[in-house]
């Protein structure tokens, strides 16, 4: 399972309450999992302890595309409806040392795939990707990054890198 980032911090769906509130208020009903159109939300396994049965996103498997459907069906305050630009899941950072576009191969997949293209990830004058403050941490860039290992470092909200 590759959902473990930075000391087991989970990437939570958009509009998620802070970690302590989320694990308390989530009723573990899986409705966010079942709502379409994407199949991005997973449920914490029993080994996730406090996060058992709570929703998280594994961006390497399927990132969040900011369809914003999951908060709409959450019966609790675990996920609240917010505009996509305020979904505040985390923050991505480009690892420039291994990023194609920063090392001579024009790539820009992260920029092209970013749901907030031009806002959260922009390109500098030489078409090198730069993540801005507007990044909500949806993980699409991490998902599509063609380098191995990926040249995006994604820190879930509440975690420090």
């Amino acid at each position: 399972m590759s959902f473990l980032f930075d000391r087991s911090g989970l990437l939570r769906p958009p509009g998620a309450a802070d970690e302590a509130d989320l694990v308390g208020s989530c009723i573990r009903c899986a409705r966010c999992v079942e709502v379409r159109p994407y199949q991005s939300i997973r449920l914490g396994p029993i080994t996730a302890l406090r996060s058992y049965g709570t929703p998280f996103i594994d961006p390497l498997g399927s990132p969040c595309y900011l369809c914003m459907r999951c908060p709409e069906v959450c019966p609790t305050s675990a996920l609240t409806v917010v505009p996509a630009v305020e979904s505040a899941m985390g923050t991505a950072r480009v690892i420039e040392e291994s990023c194609y576009s920063w090392t001579g191969t024009v790539c820009n997949q992260c920029y092209r795939s970013c749901p907030l293209k031009g806002t959260a990830i922009d390109l500098d004058d030489l078409l090198q990707p730069v993540v801005t403050e507007a990044c909500v941490g949806c993980g699409v860039c991490l998902h599509v990054c063609p380098t191995e290992p990926r040249s995006i470092h994604l820190v879930p909200r509440g975690e420090t890198s």
């Binding site: 989530c26 409705r31 069906v73």
Partner: peptide, 23 residues
């Protein structure tokens, strides 16, 4: 969507009362 912990549509929900109390 949902399970016996909570199910419903976007406009209504039925939730497990113990789940409600606990959360």
């Amino acid at each position: 969507q949902g399970t016996l912990c909570s199910f419903g549509t976007e406009s209504w929900s039925v939730s497990c009362p113990l789940g409600v109390a606990q959360t």
